[in-house]
Write a protein that binds this DNA or RNA. Sequence first.
DNA 1: CCTTGACCTTCCAATGATGGGAAGGTGTAC
DNA 2: GTACACCTTCCCATCATTGGAAGGTCAAGG
Lengths: 135, 135
Amino acid sequence: MNIGLAAKQTGVSAKMIRHYEAIGLVRPAARRENLYRDYGERDVHDLRFIRRARKLGFSIEEIGGLLALWRDETRPSSEVRRIATVHVEDLENRVAEMLAMIATLRRLIDACPGDATPDCPILADLGDACHRTLT
Amino acid sequence: MNIGLAAKQTGVSAKMIRHYEAIGLVRPAARRENLYRDYGERDVHDLRFIRRARKLGFSIEEIGGLLALWRDETRPSSEVRRIATVHVEDLENRVAEMLAMIATLRRLIDACPGDATPDCPILADLGDACHRTLT
DNA sequence: CCTTGACCTTCCAATGATGGGAAGGTGTAC
DNA sequence: GTACACCTTCCCATCATTGGAAGGTCAAGG
């Protein structure tokens, strides 16, 4: 099948399919006589795998590791679990940071009149030379 | 003051200070005879403002708008509030997405034996041709 | 046979925020 | 006078993705 059809069937854009090939995440596609890439079942599987892993926020590097484990019949599930755990902890750290941002911003927004007057605690907080975190 | 001192006083690296100047986020610094950049009170203020806004996750573009409002004595606080609200809603959306990823991954990790056996629900979920979200 | 439109190819560039480093000029302290 | 810390500009890299240009290929229809 052509790259366009593979893209439709996997939800990965043709652009990204070529890119994943260029960086070595997927094996180079077979080529027809006209040099068009030709995809089969296994390629489609790998691309779907990648798309799902991306949706779960795995990096390309992590996905490379997961794909290798997928292909390794003798893989220990502990290794997969380790990668996923490291990733989920990273996600949790980032969420915690973002929640802190949100809490601060919500406080500032609540304190801001939001009318035509120029007095705004949001700008005051960002610009105040004697900066302190609101409590 | 030199760019290095300004960097120390504001927490913005010299690299980034030059970058912010290049993209027009801050006004071009005054130059001494030797072409060294020369920073004053107001520059330091703007850089601190930027650093704090970055810590709250505002994009450079949003910060440009906030800085302009800061300098505008007649700004309506409603405009500042609007920018902050849009941003916080964006943050909340991203957090919700990440929480969904985390929930899915936690379920998969909990179901994974994490031992030397190759059977792993994490890979099964990523690779299954008949894919369904775990409930 | 020729055109049109939809596909495919490769290559180059941009995004946003930041860091790294090279090559070269300047300032200061010993 | 020389060593060292600082400054300058310029280019490149990251990460994942998108966009476009320039050109080749294929199928349908006039």
